[in-house]
Simulated assay, not measured.
Amino acid sequence: MTGWTIEALHDDHAQALRESAVLYDSRTDHQRLRVFENGLFGRVLTLDDVVQVTERDNFIYHEMLTHVPILAHGAARRVLIVGGGDGGMAREVLRHASVEHVTMVEIDAGVVEFCKQYLPAISAGAFDDPRLELVIDDGAAFMRRDGPGHDVIIVDSTDPIGPGEVLFTDTFYGHAKRRLNAGGILVTQSGVPFVQGAELAGTMRAFTALFADATCYLATVPTYAGGPMAFGWGTDGDAREASLDVLATRLAKAGIETGYYTPEVHRAAFALPGYVKRLIA
């Protein structure tokens, strides 16, 4: 359809977004990048015609992949982000004044540069924060090397095709665990279980072998079509047991206003429907 972007990530299901204006369309060494305006979602970034982020609903995804592990941990000082070239994940992590250092590893410098220009509201100045160290590198290669430990590791990957495929392997997760400090937490983008069940099942199989506490939690992001999105959770600590009162106290101390995350949503996100429970069993 002329004037529409058709995302056909799944064989039997697609979504369409109207393009009121195309602002950017170019192929890098790794993928095709496009930014267009949509009347409902504002500016939309797609990679190889798959929606990655929008101005309107990105807060849900970014808040749930950052505030859940950071507030559950309670004392996170060093955070590693793998992927996240649009800067939204760094934006939310850096809202925590208690976080002293953030390393962001992005494979494609082109993504970072054009997001700064065409989607500045997503990063909201995060790239200028002196606590952020931006590393242009392959995330899997970076994780294999020795380096400092982290209290929280966030894998903000694309779907397991193309450059993002290596970020869904057992080997990658094993290397990530090695980079966690004691009591550290690994969280991952694990797809939409209703239409990408194998993706979540594979992640949970690896996490169960690696971590004492391995599960997932959910959030509904409108442009990630097909139902609630799952986020993998792995730790050897007891952070998931943080009570509602503890989470509320930590959020108040952080002084952060959120659009989706609340302590109640945090706790409820780990209450899984039957079809998801069966996928991760």
Rank of each mutant, 00 (worst) to 15 (best):
Q196A: 14
F172Y: 14
I122N: 01
R131V: 10
S190E: 08
L167P: 05
F142H: 14
F142I: 08
R144P: 06
P148T: 08
L134G: 09
D137N: 10
L186D: 06
L119W: 05
G125Y: 03
D138V: 12
G162R: 11
T188G: 01
D146S: 15
V152F: 04
A198Y: 05
A182N: 14
P120N: 02
G164N: 06
D151I: 08
S190W: 03
G139N: 07
I161W: 09
F127I: 04
I185E: 00
I122T: 14
L167N: 04
P120C: 08
A198N: 12
K177F: 06
L180Q: 11
Q189S: 08
D151Q: 09
G183V: 08
E199L: 15
V192E: 04
V155R: 00
A124T: 05
I153N: 01
I153F: 00
F168C: 05
A140K: 06
G149C: 10
G183Y: 08
F172C: 06
F142R: 11
P193H: 07
F194R: 13
G164V: 04
I154E: 04
G197E: 00
E133N: 13
L132I: 14
M143L: 15
P148H: 02
A121T: 12
V152K: 02
G149L: 13
Y173V: 00
M143V: 14
N181F: 09
A126S: 14
P148G: 03
D170V: 09
H150G: 02
T171F: 13
K177D: 05
L132F: 10
D156P: 02
V187T: 15
P193D: 06
G164L: 07
S190F: 01
I136Y: 03
T169Y: 07
A140Q: 09
G139V: 09
L134K: 11
G197K: 04
V155P: 02
H150I: 02
D137Q: 08
A141Q: 14
A121R: 14
Q189P: 06
A176C: 14
